[in-house]
Nucleic acid binder design. Structure first.
Lengths: 217, 217
DNA sequence: ATGAGCGGATAGTGGCACTATCCGCCATCC
DNA sequence: GGATGGCGGATAGTGCCACTATCCGCTCAT
């Protein structure tokens, strides 16, 4: 398959494919002569994965490059393939150093030990969590910490479902790729489900005709 | 308070505050003379909200403008304040029209009716959901639909927690703002919790030392 | 032999979230 | 009462990002 056919099959323009190759997201085609290369099904599949991570997962090209490099590295332990991108995200934003941040870090540490999670608060997800909680606290929503355990229950349930799915999917494709797909696209899936569930729950609580009053203090 | 103090209190540079005013995210200060304006606590609070939605929630400036316009509009029913931004997001990306999309839409319609959700598949969240499922199907992960109900259980639990929180928070501030904060920042919180739960679940399943082999088919 | 397509390189585009600069004005401190 | 620094408002510029356009010399199918 030449680059034009790859482009037609996937809907990705030729210059964009070249760009992905340059950025290290996609391996180059195998050269059959000085200016002819052939692409296989692996390229097609990889290209679809890239577009899904970009369009649905909202990842950046540089993050995808890191994650895919980790996917392609057989030395890399499964559990930190996604860490490759996560650490890059975490360090990008601004660090606060105030009372809210300190309190949020305590809340997170408490949560992790309370649930017996085998992780450490140095994990970038833990940092993101305390960043989000600190932002809420700065907005006067310290009390959100009260629903953290409900959230954590749901997160554990999702994590179990994910692990179970990956375990069952061994026959389909590379497990590592399944983990990436499940984690990144699964987040988009859950986010959409959460919004749907919000609509339903608020319809049940406030009436479904949407004619309710706006309450303010 | 003048703009310089507002800037010092919130850590947002003065030109950036001016930019937010221009873009309609922040109301202008009250003019006390031709080139002097005074800002109050509402401005400070609003500014912190903007930064949280931007930095933690990952929203775009134009989306935030839409949502805040809806927040400030007392005529607007609560349940579609967030729709203001959601609809804008949905229409932004590319539409596919293939077998995977059609199948995914069927899966979503089935899910909604199976769970008795009082929503319609025309909801933009439903569209996002089928987009994500279609992307997975294109990657050979049609079977992900099997864990959808586990995801939906978790999403319902989170939605109940959110509604309960907002209900309890009536005394704190405007309910509508609480919904926005809970929905947007809550997503960041859940995402981080999910990643933490993944680490824990995979440590329990594969051993926590990270020395496990990489399995491939 | 010829023209469409190719690999590879370089430069340009459009969108976004700011950021820099300028202007004339005003409040405040000496 | 004059200097000075900050102010509101306007316009233009910056840096990053994900592409996209163009060019070159080559080669493969017809």
């Amino acid at each position: 398959m030449r680059i034009g056919e790859l482009s037609r099959k996937t809907g990705v323009p030729v210059p964009t494919i070249k760009y992905y190759v340059r950025e290290g997201l996609l391996p180059a085609g195998e050269l059959t002569s000085r200016n002819q290369a052939s692409y296989g099904e692996a390229h097609e599949r990889r290209l679809r994965l890239i577009r899904a991570l970009l369009d649905v997962g909202g990842m950046r090209v540089a993050e995808i490059a890191d994650v895919l490099a980790a996917v392609d590295d057989p030395e890399r332990p499964l559990h930190n393939v996604l860490g490759a991108a996560a650490d890059r995200i975490g360090s990008a934003s601004v660090e606060h150093d105030d009372a809210e941040s300190a309190a949020a870090q305590d809340v997170v540490a408490g949560l992790i030990s309370r649930r017996g999670w085998r992780t450490h608060e140095s994990n970038s997800a833990a940092a993101d969590l305390s960043k989000a909680l600190a932002a809420m606290a700065r907005l006067g929503h310290e009390a959100f910490a009260e629903v953290l355990d409900d959230y954590a229950d749901a997160a554990e349930q999702v994590a179990r479902a994910d692990l179970g799915y990956v375990d069952r999917q061994v026959a389909v494709a590379d497990v590592v790729e399944s983990v990436v797909v499940g984690t990144v696209l699964g987040e988009a899936v859950f986010s959409a489900l959460r919004r749907l569930a919000h609509v339903d729950a608020s319809a049940r609580l406030y009436g479904e005709d949407g004619a309710q009053e706006r309450k303010t203090i």
